[in-house]
């Protein structure tokens, strides 16, 4: 595992007295598909938010290549080459699918207000190129022909795909997917699984995803990290993780229930 694209060290995120992420170390190899799993409330999305700058980690460091991300604004992190999707779809309502993708391209476009007002040749050709690229992306995610639909009028599955297209528009090196198959039926989930593979293979991406669908996680992932109660409790290849007793405990409950409960109360109190 040489040259991790993302490496987090001792990341802690506290909200007042509540510690949502407690000292997580995590590194993602370049070009891999890495998954982050864990029960609800384990702190997975909070960790995502720390990476993308929505939250500022209370302690610790998150490095993207050699660049420190903690303290950067979300727009700076996007500029650096990280894009994400959301657990509950957050497309720009009232804008068409194409416009959503064009907003995603924002950091890669240069034209300023004056160029737009005057319609300078540079601005015009940039807009044309951007539009063409947006059409290509639309086709790539399987939304060809839906470009002029308002985002909110697309079906659920298509909205998910549009969100990915919007994330791809910023030309990221690392793509964070927060539960990409939430609310999908088994067929759609299968499609999404192949799509995620295709993304990595064809677009040269590293993909880091949060997911509850174990079939998908175990099939596509090169590396699986497991979180529970804010801590990373296991990491490894899918088969290693599946055998790990702490993971089984987190998902299925421990045999010694009383002991676990006691421990958990302690954690909340701290």
């Amino acid at each position: 595992m040489s040259d991790p694209i993302l490496s987090a060290q001792r990341v802690i995120k506290r909200f007042g007295g509540l510690t949502a992420v407690r000292s997580v170390d995590l590194s993602i190899p370049r070009g891999s598909i890495a998954s982050l799993i864990g029960p609800n409330g384990a702190g997975k999305t909070t960790f995502f938010n720390c990476v993308t700058g929505f939250y500022v980690a209370t302690e610790g460091s998150i490095k993207f290549g050699n660049r420190e991300l903690v303290g950067l604004r979300p727009d700076q992190i996007t500029n650096a080459g990280i894009a994400r999707t959301y657990q509950n779809i957050r497309l720009f309502q009232g804008m068409t699918a194409l416009e959503n993708i064009l907003v995603g391209m924002h950091p890669r476009l240069k034209s300023g207000p004056l160029g737009s007002i005057l319609g300078l040749p540079g601005q015009r050709s940039e807009e044309r190129a951007a539009l063409r690229k947006a059409m290509d992306l639309l086709e790539y995610v399987g939304l060809a022909g839906n470009g002029d639909w308002l985002a909110e009028n697309l079906s659920y599955g298509l909205q998910r795909r549009l969100e990915i297209a919007r994330a791809l528009a910023s030309e990221p090196q690392l793509l964070l997917l927060d539960e990409p198959t939430a609310g999908m039926n088994p067929n759609e989930t299968d499609d999404m699984m192949h799509f995620i593979r295709r993304l990595r293979d064809e677009r040269n991406l590293t993909i880091f995803l949060i997911e509850h669908d174990m079939k998908l996680v175990m099939t596509v992932s090169d590396q699986v990290s497991v979180m529970d109660y804010g801590e990373k409790i296991a990491e490894g290849t899918p088969s290693e993780v599946q055998r790990n007793p702490r993971v089984i405990e987190a998902y299925l409950g421990a045999q010694n229930v009383d002991k676990t409960r006691g421990k958990r109360k302690e954690q909340v109190a701290s």
């Binding site: 727009d75 720009f92 804008m95 416009e99």
Partner: peptide, 23 residues
């Protein structure tokens, strides 16, 4: 154009607009 799309994105969802790289 680009700035107008950024504005409308901010109106729709400020946090996500920011995450899209809009200053």
């Amino acid at each position: 154009t680009r700035l107008g799309r950024a504005w409308r994105a901010i109106r729709a969802d400020e946090d996500v607009a920011r995450a899209m790289g809009i200053n």
